[in-house]
């Protein structure tokens, strides 16, 4: 029986672990910290659990730049961010702590607006103007694509307003889910129609709640 010399020699190092999860976690956290300090953390990301599945959150030094549903494929979204912004992309939760907390509060019905710095660089021109105006749509209300087009300064650009909503890089936080078709149907949504319906129900429930003071359902915690 023969063993290859390389294999035998590699066995010499069996005591030196090939994977050391504790050390890797510690070193990764240290790298994220020193990268941020050195101004090299161009895109930080983390995921946060939500009733609509895990959400990817990514931020530049300027603010939250991307929110993505799992159906958008988080790896694909990270690859896009690397191409569109910078390949200096690291999982670095610290920069996203506040965003993650606010999103959790939103899904728990304890938050009606986001107080976050946003980086809208992934959207340009009319689409970007639309996004800015979307943040004016109040929690628990809906509006039409036509109204959004008008608010963004081009009442005839209804289709373009729809595209701006469908390509919103910051779903949930920039509330494109509050824009519905004038025939009452929901319209496109990056997270899928079911996700859009869920968000509108969540907000309707909370908005009812605030007006009437009647508890929504027995399983919902009281809003703080």
């Amino acid at each position: 029986m023969t063993t290859s010399p390389e294999a035998t020699d590699s066995a010499l190092f069996a005591a030196l672990p090939e994977v050391d999860a504790d050390a890797e976690r510690r070193l990764h956290a240290r790298l994220a910290g020193s990268a941020a300090e050195a101004g090299l953390l161009d895109v930080a990301y983390r995921t946060v659990d939500s009733p609509l599945g895990p959400l990817l959150l990514a931020a530049t030094g300027e603010g939250l730049v991307r929110v993505a549903y799992a159906r958008e494929d988080h790896d694909r979204v990270l690859a896009q961010l690397a191409r569109q912004i910078s390949p200096r992309v690291l999982r670095a939760p610290a920069r996203l702590d506040v965003a993650a907390r606010e999103i959790e509060e939103y899904f728990a019905g304890r938050r009606v607006g986001f107080d976050l710095a946003l980086d809208l660089r992934l959207s340009a021109g009319f689409r970007r103007t639309v996004l800015v105006h979307l943040t004016d749509i109040a929690y628990g209300t809906t509006t039409s694509y036509a109204a959004v087009a008008a608010a963004a300064g081009n009442p005839r650009a209804v289709r373009a307003a729809g595209t701006a909503c469908a390509t919103n890089p910051l779903p949930v936080v920039v509330p494109c889910h509050r824009v519905v078709r004038s025939d009452g149907t929901l319209g496109q949504y990056a997270g899928g129609t079911d996700a859009k319906r869920s968000l509108l129900s969540l907000e309707a429930l909370r908005a009812d709640h605030a007006e009437t003071g009647v508890p929504g359902s027995a399983t919902r915690p009281e809003p703080a």
């Binding site: 890797e24 990764h28 200096r88």
Partner: peptide, 19 residues
């Protein structure tokens, strides 16, 4: 130039470089 997210490089090569 290389445009894969750097995080993938850390995941793929970090353990071996540590060794």
């Amino acid at each position: 130039v290389n445009q894969e997210p750097f995080e993938a490089i850390v995941q793929r090569h970090g353990p071996r470089v540590l060794r």
